[in-house]
Design a protein around this nucleic acid. Structure first.
Lengths: 132, 132
DNA sequence: TTGACTGTATTATGGGACTAATACACTTTC
DNA sequence: GAAAGTGTATTAGTCCCATAATACAGTCAA
């Protein structure tokens, strides 16, 4: 059963998109695997304190992306393959890195300064248990 | 007069926030300076193909942040100081870098791999005229 | 002074995100 | 078989973003 213990909703981004991203990123990280069961719409919505329809929206989009399989009456399960994960990784990384690059460029930050700032922040916010 | 030639609206983020960020980032980069005139609400909205009220919302928030000065009948002007710019830079950088760091960590990307990916993307998307 | 342009304010409309309350069909488990 | 849990669907309501159409008061330049 996929855990949502580390899921922390932020405001500014629609919740259904945050759920979507949480699962996609978990798949890329390998913490969410093919065949893993997802919590039911009702259980997860209660756990997150949101409406069941919001969870349904996220899960429905995951199904459209062919990343989960749903069947009336049974729990939904992850439907992953190495190929899908590679593509997910490329897509997510591309979006994130394009975003930060454009943002820093607009602020007149140089490449080296950007790398230095990110490296410093990474260390300052690390848990200490990482191998990074 | 502040130019919006390099402003390219993206979907997903409210337009008024994008205008707000465009101006704040320009102030940090130094391309927008204290005393610079802003285009009028009507002119800018026509230029961007959006509603005057959307521009007004962005400008109103800039005024609440004490970054511009408006007076009925006259054009609005930037109201910057070194102190404000330093704070702006810290705030914007903090938000952006926290965001990318969390995102990459959730994908299981290591610090070194993150830096490598960003460095590569930076070069691949550079204009060639940068000193970076 | 006059006309064009400016900032500001108001009301109305539509769409997306989210909530709320149901309802129905199906699977799973005892 | 029955009860509990599941996915799915519908309708209604609120709030924010954005549009649309005005209106009014002040500045600026000819």
């Amino acid at each position: 059963m996929i855990s949502f213990e580390t899921f922390k909703p932020t405001d500014g981004t629609p919740i259904y998109l945050q759920i979507l991203l949480y699962i996609k990123r978990g798949a890329v990280a390998g913490t969410i695997r093919d065949g893993d069961e997802l919590p039911s719409r009702r259980v997860l919505s209660a756990l997150l304190g949101i409406n069941p329809n919001t969870v349904q929206k996220a899960f429905h989009m995951l199904e459209e992306d062919d990343l989960i399989e749903s069947q009336t009456g049974a729990k939904s399960v992850m439907k992953l393959s190495e190929e899908k994960i590679v593509k997910l990784r490329e897509d997510l990384l591309s979006d994130d890195i394009r975003s930060i690059t454009e943002s820093l460029r607009q602020m007149g930050i140089s490449r080296d300064e950007a790398l230095r700032l990110i490296a410093k922040f990474w260390e300052d916010t690390g848990t200490g248990t990482d191998i990074d």
